[in-house]
Design a protein around this nucleic acid. Structure first.
Lengths: 204, 204
DNA sequence: GTCTATATTAAGATAGAC
DNA sequence: GTCTATCTTAATATAGAC
């Protein structure tokens, strides 16, 4: 019969795990992954390095969990944006706008998540999450193609290309720090609508 | 008066530097950056680890030089492709086709250069070279906008987005290993033409 | 459970023989 | 100039006290 921690104990452990992650979020937002050593995160959380290992098996797991925590929120926000009323193109455009707007609100953090050199475990997560974003877009694009709103195309290819396009178009402004949503977002949406090929792309 | 090596000696050093880089290219093509430790590169080149430091100040410089050596060729090929006759859209499409075709000819290596987790120095080079590719595309796009072939848009934004789009669309096929140029390239070109917004995009 | 202080380790880098 | 063998180091990860 396997041992299980009493619920109260488990709750404490979970709470500390969350506190460590929250500290890591703050550190990441200020200094990027470059500032996220185990020691620095422990200090930010107000605990010792040893205690970090109560919640995480090691640095790689922590870095990956940090990434997942933050990017899962973005994925959720993007997925929610695709549920607005409108055609496939409008829904994808809403998703792109949501993603870009949120990134530009926290440029240092967004740059860290999107492009900053980091632990290989983080790079692996990046590949996984880019696939997840792709799948969200691909679903909308497939529907648009099926109903004739969009021209024939591979939804997966277009969706993957859009994920890469949005990320790369944001990296420059995010890295510069002079991130002005008003300048970048309309251009990104126009690009997206053209790339999707909806008949009204030229009007946007 | 500064000391200078005799030309014959300098030539020997240059030759060995090239041999080390060539060995690194082979290793990268087989095993990616994961296999490119200093020790492994030295073994592949048939020299000792210590001798590597005659040509390179350290691992980061070697990894970055390796990246630059290979990607500079790709940049050159892409730039050459934009000099073909035709409108801006045709030239950009030719560049995209060139880039994708060459990547799919050496999928393991292309994946390593495009997306594989690697030394931070390599990530820094990735950012620089993506800018360089962007600039090549941006020049063509700006010309297309100026002459009215393409609709109004920010050449830098469209160019950056295309760089990201092409890379991300290739990552999946390259990682899977089942890279069939015939499947991916036409879709990529169609995406590119739509994204540029040329009037004939729908025909392609 | 939490801390301090220490051990590990894995790679990169170097010194000195030849 | 080149090699072997060693050293460094910068973290991470752990052991054991409290």
């Amino acid at each position: 019969m396997p041992y299980r921690r009493p619920p109260s104990v488990q709750a404490r452990l979970d709470a500390r795990r969350d506190r460590v992650l929250e500290a890591a979020v703050h550190l990441l937002s200020r200094e990027g992954y470059g500032g996220c050593s185990v020691a620095a995160i422990a200090a930010e959380a107000g605990i010792s390095t040893g205690s970090v290992y109560q919640s995480f098996s090691g640095k790689s797991e922590l870095a990956a969990a940090l990434f997942r925590t933050l990017v899962a929120r973005e994925l959720e926000a993007v997925a929610a944006a695709t549920e607005r009323p409108g055609g496939a193109a409008q829904r994808v455009a809403a998703a792109v706008e949501t993603f870009a707007y949120r990134a530009l609100q926290a440029p240092r953090r967004a740059f860290a998540l999107l492009a900053e050199p980091a632990d290989p475990a983080v790079d692996a997560e990046r590949l996984l999450f880019r696939r997840a974003f792709r799948d969200v877009y691909a679903g909308q694009i497939a529907a648009g193609v099926a109903c004739g709103e969009l021209p024939a195309q591979s939804p997966e290819l277009t969706a993957a290309a859009l994920v890469g396009a949005i990320a790369e178009a944001l990296v420059g402004p995010l890295a510069d720090g002079d991130a002005a949503p008003g300048d970048v977002i309309p251009g990104l949406i126009a690009f997206t609508l053209r790339a999707l090929g909806g008949h009204d792309a030229a009007d946007a």
